[in-house]
Design a protein around this nucleic acid. Sequence first.
DNA 1: ACCTCTTGTGTACACTTGTTCACTAATGTG
DNA 2: CACATTAGTGAACAAGTGTACACAAGAGGT
Lengths: 210, 210
Amino acid sequence: MAEKQRRKPGETRAKLMDAALTLVGKGRHFASLGIREVTRQAGVVPTSFYRHFRNMDDLGLQLVDELGLVLRRMMREARGNVLQADKLIEESVAIFISHAQSNRNFFMFMAQGLAGESRAVQEGIRSEMRFFASELGNDLRRLRLVDHLSDADLDITCDLVVRSVAFSLTDLLGVSGDDDYQVEQIRKRTTRFLQLIFVGAAHWDGKSGI
Amino acid sequence: MAEKQRRKPGETRAKLMDAALTLVGKGRHFASLGIREVTRQAGVVPTSFYRHFRNMDDLGLQLVDELGLVLRRMMREARGNVLQADKLIEESVAIFISHAQSNRNFFMFMAQGLAGESRAVQEGIRSEMRFFASELGNDLRRLRLVDHLSDADLDITCDLVVRSVAFSLTDLLGVSGDDDYQVEQIRKRTTRFLQLIFVGAAHWDGKSGI
DNA sequence: ACCTCTTGTGTACACTTGTTCACTAATGTG
DNA sequence: CACATTAGTGAACAAGTGTACACAAGAGGT
């Protein structure tokens, strides 16, 4: 009859966060999840929830923090694995797609949170994206690929890149995940987006052509 | 004691859709709305809901249809008001911002729906965006601004434009709406995004520079 | 003027929800 | 080892939920 088992500290906490992500992965929207539903999915009694979170928004915020870790891991892998500068975009997008696939639930949560109910979660995800964009800017500077761009223009460029990739998330999460053909299409399309943006950046002179 | 009043056919239907949008405008997420909540906001008895919609998803789908009308109105205005080709981007973005402001709730619903709970609503909004992109492509062709682009490349470009603008929605809806300074910042930034994309398109040769 | 269909109302019911409370087993520190 | 703290459990409750049903008022066609 479900004895107590407190094996490791914070195990239930992790189970709850996992449960929320699992439900999101099943197509539910985070904003529509309830405490009881999450605890049920986690196989835990409802009252346990309050030992770790004040409410669902709180859980959301802690998920954002973990999302930050996932994104940082992804950045690290991209930095380590992108060897040739001429395939930078292609390989980066591939790494992104691969991470989005293996952390599907996390990225689904991210896509939802951008227009979610909790202002705090929204701001948190937005802030992660800003960080991501600024790191991208640093990398491009270091590789001396954008010497002709002002800081402000580089900022715009990286922001646009990150947004485009983030938007591709909604494409990616819309297809079934093991539909290799569709995933490949999305990968190609996203790659082209970024190439288009970087061609624009390469020819940018501070004024518009149109 | 709340007599029957069926003045016009479909009045309650409109009240219910308005109520849902109002709640969304107040910061609620569509996925978290309930039937009773919506009817309460509409000042209507819960059972009336079923006279017009099968469930909340159904209401969402019908909202998407109306959203289509809003978008078409916006396109028409853009086509009529963009006079000088050299200010095409700037003026189009301005019109977009203005429409997004005056139909705030609708666009909020759109931003939410992109990563929403109902797959059908998601697909509906996505389809509206595709239509928008294709119309944009037609216009650019007609104005002979993209003669050097293949159909496929034009398609990519317009898609990227529409996505960037749509993403700006989440910026726009995050600020208070009468915060003119912030709105102006978003307008400028979105304009720059599009300019960057079009510079890229102007110099696009089917291969990437990076 | 009649009848029929549509639309809105009130009541009812079985469930689900968030949250509180008192209780208990495991844990780590002295 | 003793003890305080932490993290789990179960029962309880008031409030809210989706949905079904029977009924009534107005609209529209004949």
